[in-house]
Amino acid sequence: MLRLPVFDVAAPDKLTDALRSLADSQAGARPLGGGTDLLPNVKLGQTRMAMALLLRGVGELRGIERRGDNLWLGAGNTLAQVAQDEQVRDALPALAHAASRVASPQIRNMATLGGNLCLDTRCRYINQSEFWRQALGGCLKSHGSECHVVPGGQGCVAALSSDTAPALIAYDATVEIASWRDEGVQTREVPLAELYDSDGTRHVRLESTELLVGVRAPVPGLNVRVGHRKWAVRKSIDFPLISVALRLELDGALAAGGKLVVGVLGPRPRVLDLKAFAGRALAPDFARDLGQLAFDRCRPLPNVPYDAEYRRERLPVEVRRLALSLFGDQAAQS
């Protein structure tokens, strides 16, 4: 069978130990939550790893709790836990939905929220065997100098194929990042949208010594509606070909603003501000205009393995349907 290359394994049970391992640059450790993204990538030789840092035993990464106006989710929660958690379903239903749509039941039992946010970018020219990529002659992300998605392109445009990232960005979530420095734990917190860079070879703005330990999402008030929608060819197992989240802020019955977050375009989700739509009624024409906005501003690339032109055509339909589902009865009546 396809074999993993040789590497060491460390299984810390305390965050400080995990961070120390990461800080030890000699170790070349990679954090491993559920391993459902990392291990296939390592098996395929597209990711190298000198040491797997098993995070499962680190208690500080677990738990889902209300902290004031926020819901805090440890990065080590599995996607199944996130999808099934009552607090998440109440406070962040679009996140629960996104988590419930990731891959397959087994993968949701294994994969962690942190892992899904730090998912490696995907591309039809990368997620292949070592043999395949060598036959191709490599690419920007894989010992080559040519981009096959955008001929002549200088930057890797592999797609972040996370389902939870668009949803959490729509919730204005921030991520808590920790590292071991100066004999202590240093933490910083950044908006999730700013975690991502446009370079598909290093799209997660984490130093190799840093670990994503948790997510903090403000629990939206009654005037905010957030939804998520995924499309893939198959209803299970597949990565998304379209993953969109919509945040709608309301002023009474009218839109006041919000954002549309579109995933699976390139290395980072596209965030479109909806201030310009303030004052619009929650009616089908508004939904259509949101779809048009997505169509005008987003151009799916032939990076993930599906017809890019079709993905572009489909995107506005998915956005419109997502909007209509958030409008609820108001749209149906108009």
Binding site: S129, W132, Q134, G137, R234, I237, D238, P305
Partner: peptide, 24 residues
């Protein structure tokens, strides 16, 4: 004619070769 994309399989895994799941 050098090493390039000619002749490479577009889908050579059970992820990319999409056969129906129990939900499809």
């Amino acid at each position: 004619p050098g090493p390039g994309r000619d002749g490479l399989l577009a889908a050579s895994s059970l992820l990319d070769y999409r056969m129906p799941t129990s939900l499809d």
